[in-house]
Design a protein around this nucleic acid. Structure first.
Length: 179
DNA sequence: CCCTGATTCGC
DNA sequence: GCGAATCAGG
């Protein structure tokens, strides 16, 4: 693989859009290993990995015959349904809260309904049909002010047009690889 | 067995 | 630096 700046740019773009490594590989005509390898080298933001491969946990593991045995099971650190990174300021260029944010419907802290002893989570369940609201987080999670954009999401996208425009960085127009 | 992504390690 | 091999989880 010839990692030109173009290629790297494309990789970053696709990565930011939340494609799977295999998909990116397919799209770029390279293997997923190449993709993940390069992404790793570029220190691209890792997306939720299915595995928890800790390396060098135990000091006694100085010698690594093949790979680490299977020590203990650490308490899952990564929520299967990634919460919205509400800290991202839609100011400059929040690369994109991609599919990670798109998937879950992270329960909007309900309006000033009533101070019921509700665990402050999952109050408004899913309301997909007919009103897919924008997933763009507003405010600090955990605060009463936290909510999601109420605009209607683009069909097929988790964000309203406004937020989609800042959520998705237009990938460079790569026509050379147009199959 | 399919998928996923991460790390390792020979090159 | 590269990426196949391998690992590991769903």
């Amino acid at each position: 693989m010839d990692w030109t700046t173009e290629a790297i740019d494309a990789l970053k773009a696709l990565w930011a859009e939340g494609h799977s490594t295999a998909e990116i590989g397919r799209r770029m005509g390279i293997s997923k290993n190449a993709v993940v390898g390069k992404a790793h080298r570029l220190s691209l933001p890792a997306r939720p990995s299915p595995i928890r491969r800790e390396t060098g946990t135990s000091p006694a593991a100085a010698s690594r015959p093949v790979q680490e045995p299977k020590p203990a099971v650490i308490p899952a650190t990564r929520p299967s349904t990634p919460l919205p990174v509400a800290t991202l300021p839609p100011a400059t260029r929040p690369i994109a809260p991609p599919a990670a944010l798109a998937q879950p419907r992270p329960a909007a802290p309900p309006p000033p309904r009533r101070p019921a002893p509700v665990p402050s989570a999952v109050v408004r369940p899913f309301q997909r049909l007919g009103g897919r609201s924008c997933c763009w987080p507003i405010g600090e999670p955990g605060t009463p002010e936290f909510r999601f954009c109420t605009a209607e999401a683009i069909n097929g996208k988790p964000y309203c047009p406004e937020h989609a425009s800042i959520a998705y960085v237009k990938a460079r127009d790569r026509r050379e690889d147009a199959a």
